[in-house]
């Protein structure tokens, strides 16, 4: 988290006691490049580790030739399939071929339909990102203000009831929420489409479904953090100086409360790309999660490998961005960096 801050160096010029601190200008670019280089090396190590682990784990799940041949497949057919896809080669050989191609971002073709595995993943990325983006936004729009509101005066009866409702919400599976939403807004009211990605209206229910099981977690964290912050000395001081309740809550307490919630939100975003399978299935949302599950079920190794590779990059990027957000909202980290 604090790599960026740690790597930053500050020089105070000699004879400039009491003068303003000056940051070296020339090494800034070099430092940034060093940081980028470190991150890239980290990412490459991560991808190597994940790909290797996945390669061998997948081979334990079964024989894709059996799936391709179907129930009528005989030994001759199985042998042919294995030969065609290189599955008859020793495992170490298959692994090195895989690594060599993966470096070139080539994961081979889907065993099921001969399409480029990475092409199938890219085919799904836009819709997956749409869901991730909307669900993330919905999550923030719901959980930040509601969490702040709940945490600002947690002892009031209305908020206690609301907090209980949020607690209950946390336990309702997304599957149920999705089907309920469809029943009300698609079947009964016929306001919203419930299948596929058909534009903005079709985004509402899937995004709400995802947000329904993500927002309560964030909301509770923010609420607890705000409640704690509102009892801090700096809030009391600000209040004594005449700051309004609104300023106390939104400018001071919430900022501090967001520190704890940011890591959680970052982790949730990382999960979203491949993990919102239930939502994708219920809403016929052609996303990456569904592709992965189908591919795992049919032992379509190239597609699983390509999908996990892309998700690993996404997760790593999300974690990096979370670090950046931390620095943006935490002045202590900025000072440390400076």
């Amino acid at each position: 988290m604090t790599d960026i801050a740690k790597d930053a160096k500050v020089a105070v010029p000699a004879g400039a006691a009491g003068s303003e601190r000056q940051v070296e200008t020339i090494p800034v670019f070099r430092r940034t490049m060093d940081q980028v280089k470190n991150r890239v090396i980290e990412l490459l190590c991560l991808l190597f580790f994940v790909s290797t682990l996945l390669f061998f784990l997948l081979r334990l799940t079964g024989d894709p030739a059996a799936v391709l041949a179907g129930e009528t497949g005989d030994q001759e057919q199985l042998a042919l399939i294995r030969r065609q896809y290189g599955l008859d080669q020793p495992l170490w050989y298959q692994y090195f071929v895989f690594l060599f191609k993966a470096i070139q971002f080539d994961f081979g073709n889907s065993l099921a339909n001969a399409q480029s595995a990475i092409g199938l993943v890219f085919e799904r990325l836009p819709t997956s990102f749409t869901l991730v983006g909307i669900a993330f936004t919905a999550n923030l729009l719901i959980s930040i203000p509601a969490g702040a509101w709940l945490g600002s005066r947690p002892d009031r009866t209305g908020r206690k009831l609301a907090a209980t409702a949020v607690f209950v919400m946390q336990g309702i599976p997304g599957y149920i929420v999705g089907l309920l939403l469809i029943q009300v807004f698609a079947v009964e009211l016929r306001w919203l489409p419930s299948i596929g990605n058909q534009g903005p209206l079709s985004w509402i229910m899937p995004a709400t479904t995802v947000a329904s099981f993500q927002a309560p977690h964030v909301l509770r964290v923010i609420s607890a953090n705000v409640a704690e912050a509102m009892r801090e000395d700096y809030i009391r001081t600000a209040r004594a100086n005449g700051a309004s309740f609104s300023v106390l809550l939104w400018r001071h307490a919430l900022k501090n409360a967001m520190l704890g919630a940011t890591a959680l939100i970052g982790a949730q975003v990382s999960f979203l790309l491949g993990g919102s399978i239930i939502t994708e299935v219920i809403f016929a949302w052609p996303g990456l999660g569904r592709l992965m599950v189908t591919s795992v079920q049919t032992l379509d190794f190239p597609v699983v490998q390509a999908a996990v590779f892309v998700i690993a990059i996404f997760v790593y990027t999300a974690i990096m961005l979370t670090d950046v957000v931390f620095i943006m909202i935490d002045p202590r980290l900025r000072r440390q960096r400076a």
Binding site: L179, I182, Q183, A186, V187, R190, P193, S194, I195, G196, V281, I282, F283, A284
Partner: peptide
């Protein structure tokens, strides 16, 4: 032709006039 693996979701899509 739309793939919709969940039975309840298929039925709901029919009842809502989408399929």
């Amino acid at each position: 032709s739309i793939s919709l693996p969940e039975r309840p979701a298929r039925t709901q899509a029919l009842l809502s006039g989408q399929l």
